[in-house]
Amino acid sequence: MDEASFDNLYQTSFNRLVAQIYAMCGNLTEAQDCVQEAFIRAWDKRKKLDQAQSPEAWVRTVAYRLAVSRWRKNRKAYRDPDRAVESPVSREPNPDRVALDRALAQISPEQRRVIVLHHFADLTVAEIAQEVGAPAGTVKARLSRGRAALAPFLTDTAEVRHA
């Protein structure tokens, strides 16, 4: 991959990858940092990245692994961010997106990952299986169980219960 191809990859996929990693880990700042770090690593390997083998999937996998690694290192010290230090949000979040983020936080990381890859990244079951290193049957089971686990959190009555 030459520099122009890499620049194009970065420009066309950065925001999409941040959204996907955010949906997987639940922290926008962490998602941005992990995707940026993944692109830095991809830059160092750009001559080995093959367009046919989906460099975007490679970057997404690296970013996801970075997010998991950071979470593991920080989980004992994890606490809610200080609202006084937190940067102000420029617009109101979409209520549906808030409900979806809350619902995704309630299911297992494996189910969350395949749901995000399938529904946000529009990957097929086979592509997800290759990316996560699991058999297609396992991916299908995680999708099915994840959807079933999400359902109670995404109904109108669930919003009333959690409000």
Rank of each mutant, 00 (worst) to 15 (best):
R113H: 01
A77R: 15
H119L: 13
A103M: 06
D122F: 15
E92W: 11
W43I: 02
V35E: 08
V98K: 15
V114H: 02
A63F: 00
L49V: 00
D101Y: 14
R83G: 07
A99E: 12
A129D: 04
A84Q: 09
W71R: 12
T124V: 09
D82V: 01
Y64K: 05
L100N: 09
V59D: 07
E127A: 04
P93M: 13
Q51N: 10
A31P: 07
F39V: 02
Y78A: 14
R75T: 06
A52M: 08
A52V: 07
A77F: 13
N74F: 04
Q53P: 06
Q32R: 12
E92L: 11
I128C: 01
S108A: 03
V89F: 13
T29S: 09
C34G: 07
P88M: 03
R112A: 00
Q36R: 15
L66M: 11
R60W: 06
E127D: 12
T124I: 03
A99G: 10
D80S: 10
D80V: 09
L123P: 06
A63R: 03
A67Q: 08
A136L: 05
P88N: 08
S90T: 11
S87T: 10
D101S: 15
D101H: 15
P88S: 05
I107H: 03
R72L: 05
P95G: 08
V125F: 04
E92T: 14
T29F: 10
Y64P: 01
P81Y: 07
A31N: 05
V59K: 05
E56G: 07
V89K: 14
Y64S: 07
R97W: 14
E56D: 06
V85E: 12
V68H: 02
I115G: 03
L123T: 03
I107G: 00
A84T: 05
E86H: 09
P109R: 03
E37M: 09
I115Q: 03
R102Q: 15
R113Y: 00
W58H: 03
Q32D: 06
L66P: 03
A52G: 03
A63Q: 02
A105S: 15
E110C: 01
N94C: 13
S69L: 08
A67G: 07
D80Y: 11
R60N: 10
K47T: 01
I128E: 00
R97F: 13
R46M: 04
V89I: 08
K73C: 06
L49D: 03
H118K: 15
D44L: 08
W58M: 02
Y64F: 09
Q130H: 13
A103R: 06
E30Q: 14
P135M: 04
K73V: 07
H119R: 15
A105I: 05
V114Q: 01
R102E: 14
V98E: 15
V114A: 00
Q32M: 04
D50M: 00
